[in-house]
Design a protein around this nucleic acid. Structure first.
Lengths: 328, 328
DNA sequence: CTGTTAGCGCTTTCAC
DNA sequence: GTGAAAGCGCTAACAG
């Protein structure tokens, strides 16, 4: 391996001088600079990031903790983060919890040990212990997808989007509207979207039956199951259903179609997330586009600003954009 | 920041002794060990991976180069790689080319500079210059998804899977079978799957019309377009179509349904990849499951073996498993 | 069993 | 303008 020492020797200068031309810092005579550059060229030398960061305390690596890489939202976010970071010569160290919450804690430690310059967490919850831990870690940090007073974050306006979508359903003539949610420990998806739905229903003076509110987890099958429970319940049947993710909505549609019900005539369906499939499923799904990639870009920008201790925005809240298709 | 020096001082031993208890190497008296461990506990000290790897030349990081993180195959592979690597205390440094082939070269260099202990490439091609570069980089390396005599790889038996699927279609009574492929620079997906299809057709003495062979790129829309071209061509229409990815197949189905054609009665459709949507689309898609996560695990195992210079398998070829559903 | 010493590859004063 | 020297945090002979 060729090191700065070799270059110095070959160019007949000291290591300091080589370092200077490498970093464009301090004075270097044209002559010396030329010699050094030539030798670098010839040898194909590249300085070791290793050694550099031991000295400078900067690794140019950002740790990204995420719950899974197998669904579209986090994938898009990571893509955005990666694109923005690449512009600054930073890279992503991946920490995939595979939905194991304990690992969020573990990875926080691990990333600290690895001396990453910053951490981005694609969050599924905002449990106090987690927030505590993050503050204790004391590394530039940005959370994506959830809100908390304690940390910097990029989030979506889940409440408003849910209200808008519910409002749209009502405007289309629906009065009995069902809801498929998820656990409320996920504040953004579980709590806020539900709150938006409920508030909008209430402000329009529309009743909500208990059986119309079902809960799933994040997969397609649980959407099926939730829809099944809603349909099989005895009371009045809703004419539309709002699912808090596209996957749940797709599961719901799958069940409805299997039962021979027509969408949207017998049951309108809407989701969240603008998944790729939402436009190819039959009928195409009405949903909310959250610009996930943009969220990733914003988070990366924030963390870069934070690292450079520039003026940092404590929070960025992105809007959802309603995409109206034939499922309603 | 608390360093080994601090621990040494506080525990009244030398840095070497601290290092010894840290790494469980060499002899350390019970007494000293206890003192050191206590101090470590109290201070919450964790050794810097930075410094360690400068010394040991091991970073415990594996670079993963991939074309995109937004489709299921690479996501599943990365999940597998991550799981296996985590067992060994290794992490993934992500290098997402966003389908820009030039970046494969750039990232190879970048990962080298970062001194990663190994590189895994989720490959879309096996161009000679790329293979050259990889060998020049001289870091433990495993390629996934493509084959090459030059490097270690984990791949799928694309040829056989394509033959099997074609054979299945024929067994179901189809004689006129169309094909939606991709560019053959992607040897595995473009070339081998096509070869499997053609060989099987030939061995069964079935003709293949030129118009039955269409080409798309990797997205759903291009599947639609390809199907459209096939349907609109003048000659005889096939009764079944084989698409080399599920997304292409889903695009094709989307077009067929839009045209009011019934699947599988008027046109049977089959894909590759066992995408999640394949089971929820209507009708559920016949496809080939490639155990992508397993491929990631295998690749990680190989690279770990290679790093530890244990006996390494030069190649691992995984089978595809036919999943028969109602689209045929 | 333990400490001393040297050094990984680089940056950064501080003199000259 | 340039070099010498120190040091980032750690490991690994080597000597005792």
């Amino acid at each position: 391996m060729v090191t700065i020492k070799d270059i110095a020797k070959l160019a007949n200068v000291s290591r300091s001088t080589v370092s200077r031309v490498l970093n464009n810092s301090g004075y270097v005579s044209e002559d010396a600079r030329k010699r050094v550059e030539e030798v670098i060229e010839e040898t194909g030398y590249v300085p070791s990031e290793q050694a550099k960061s031991l000295r400078t305390k900067k690794t140019k690596v950002i740790g990204v903790i995420l719950p899974t890489i197998q669904t579209e939202t986090p994938s898009r976010i990571v893509t955005g983060v990666g694109k923005e970071l690449a512009k600054h010569g930073y890279q992503i160290l991946l920490a995939n919890t595979n939905l194991d919450k304990d690992k969020e804690f573990e990875y926080l430690d691990l990333l600290k040990v690895r001396q990453v310059d910053g951490i981005i967490l694609i969050a599924t919850n905002t449990e106090p212990e987690l927030m505590e831990k993050i503050k204790a870690i004391n590394i530039p940090f940005v959370m994506i997808g959830q809100e908390s007073e304690e940390v910097m974050y990029v989030s979506y306006d889940d409440y408003q989007a849910a209200r808008d979508l519910t409002s749209f359903l009502i405007d289309e003539g629906h009065e009995k509207i069902g809801f498929i949610g998820v656990d409320e420990t996920d504040r953004a998806v579980g709590h806020e979207r539900k709150r938006g739905y409920l508030d909008e229903m209430e402000s329009r003076k529309l009743p909500v039956e208990k059986e119309w509110m079902q809960q799933g987890i994040f997969d397609i099958d649980s959407g099926r199951e939730a829809m099944k429970r809603m349909i099989e319940s005895i009371g009045e049947r809703p004419t539309a259903v709002l699912a808090v993710t596209d996957r749940l909505a797709i599961g719901a549609m799958s069940y409805l179609k299997q039962q021979g019900m027509s969408i949207p005539d017998e049951m309108a369906v809407a989701g969240f997330g603008a998944s790729e499939m939402s436009q190819y499923i039959d009928p195409p799904l009405t949903t909310v586009d959250y610009q996930n990639e943009q969220a990733g870009i914003e988070a990366a920008k924030q963390i870069m600003a934070s690292i450079r201790s520039q003026n940092v925005q404590e929070k960025v809240i992105l809007d959802g954009r309603l995409i109206i298709r034939n499922s309603v």
